[in-house]
């Protein structure tokens, strides 16, 4: 066997590590930008951009306390499950110009289940840590999962339905199909409005999914002092901190895959001629820029602009307004398709 025969195996072994490293580092960089920009919006100077890295290094130096009444194996495995699920989700997502590592082995439905795992892990950790505040936080986390999953599912199924009509020969739930055929050109004016509504709903769902300010009822600092994360210290808290950073990368990539799967190379290919790896680099940098803009809108602006909702308001928001908006968008796209055909 020649050396090339081993390439798929080498790729399969090293790609997850590379992706995990990319997710962690870029997630922390995005977190740094988030804190710096939020500080500037509040007329402060803010921490240096490296601050999240310093935080993680410090958390890994601290003592790791497991409460006396906790269930140690669940308590300690919760941050690992959370981190692992997010890295697994990254394997199913197309990162800029690169195709997903596990693109042929799973589709959006698998991804939808994987995306529920970090929240469930946080819930397990909260319930197993024997603190009443953590139990309240875990219950709130469960309410959050129940709330935002429904609009997210409607968005995903709207896309899948539209693709199954447009391209009957392709896999409707495959992310590769989404990337290769952006939906914006293939819809009329009604469908365009529907897609815009879906985009806004998706942005709001993402803010809930990453658990940031208007929807951070699960770890509301001033109400239940940290919620499910309350009993976590040291390494475990550091892992949850990293998972929080990777979550933004995962959800941002999902938005890019759905709504902005455009690459610069396909636009500029007619004007320049560059080698293949140069185009890959340009597309990758463009992807990083898109991710940064999404993180800025979804995390920074929302967190500075809005105070925290109450629990009942969050449920009303997602089950009421967000679900209604995504259903209206679905019917608009259906009308567009049926009228157009």
């Amino acid at each position: 066997m020649s050396w090339e025969n081993y390439m798929p195996y080498i790729y399969a072994i090293f790609a997850p590590f590379a992706l995990a490293l990319f997710g962690i580092i870029y997630g922390l960089v995005l977190k740094g930008f988030d804190r710096k920009l939020a500080a500037h919006m509040q007329w402060r100077v803010g921490p240096p951009l490296r601050q999240p890295f310093y935080d993680v290094l410090k958390l890994f130096e601290k003592e790791n306390i497991v409460p006396k009444n906790a269930v140690p194996w669940i308590f300690n495995s919760a941050p690992i499950i959370s981190m692992g699920a997010l890295i697994l989700a990254l394997l199913y997502l197309p990162i800029g110009p690169f195709n997903p590592v596990l693109g042929n082995y799973g589709d959006l439905i698998v991804l939808l289940y994987i995306l529920a795992l970090p929240g469930l892990a946080m819930m397990l950790g909260g319930f197993s840590s024997s603190s009443p505040y953590s139990a309240v936080g875990a219950q709130r986390e469960f309410i959050m999962i129940l709330s935002y999953e429904f609009p997210l599912a409607i968005i995903i199924f709207t896309f899948a339905w539209k693709y199954s009509i447009l391209y009957p020969n392709l896999k409707a739930f495959s992310l590769l199909t989404f990337v290769e055929h952006p939906l914006w050109q293939n819809v009329g004016i009604l469908g365009f409005i529907g897609l815009l509504i879906l985009l806004i709903t998706m942005l709001v769902v993402t803010t809930g999914e990453v658990g940031r300010m208007p929807f951070d009822i699960a770890d509301a600092g001033t109400e239940i002092s940290g919620g499910a994360l309350l009993e976590y210290t040291g390494k475990n808290l550091g892992l949850f901190y990293l998972a929080d950073a990777v979550k933004i990368v995962v959800m941002g990539t999902l938005i890019i895959t759905f709504f902005f799967p455009y690459n610069l190379s396909s636009l500029l290919l007619h004007y320049f001629s560059l080698p293949h790896y140069a185009w890959l680099t340009i597309d990758f940098l463009f992807y990083l820029l898109k991710l940064f803009i999404i993180s800025f809108v979804v995390v920074t602006v929302m967190r500075v602009a809005f105070p925290r909702f109450r629990v009942d308001q969050v449920v009303k928001f997602y089950w009421g307004y967000a679900t209604l908006a995504s259903l209206i968008a679905l019917s608009l796209i259906v009308l567009d398709t049926v009228g157009g055909v």
């Binding site: 804190r35 500080a39 402060r44 100077v45 803010g46 921490p47 240096p48 601050q51 310093y54 935080d55 306390i65 600092g221 001033t222 002092s225 940290g226 994360l229 309350l230 009993e231 976590y232 210290t233 808290l237």
Partner: peptide
Amino acid sequence: ERFGLIVVDNPKH
């Protein structure tokens, strides 16, 4: 926060 000092919500963090 310029120096990385932030106020946290509970003594365990």
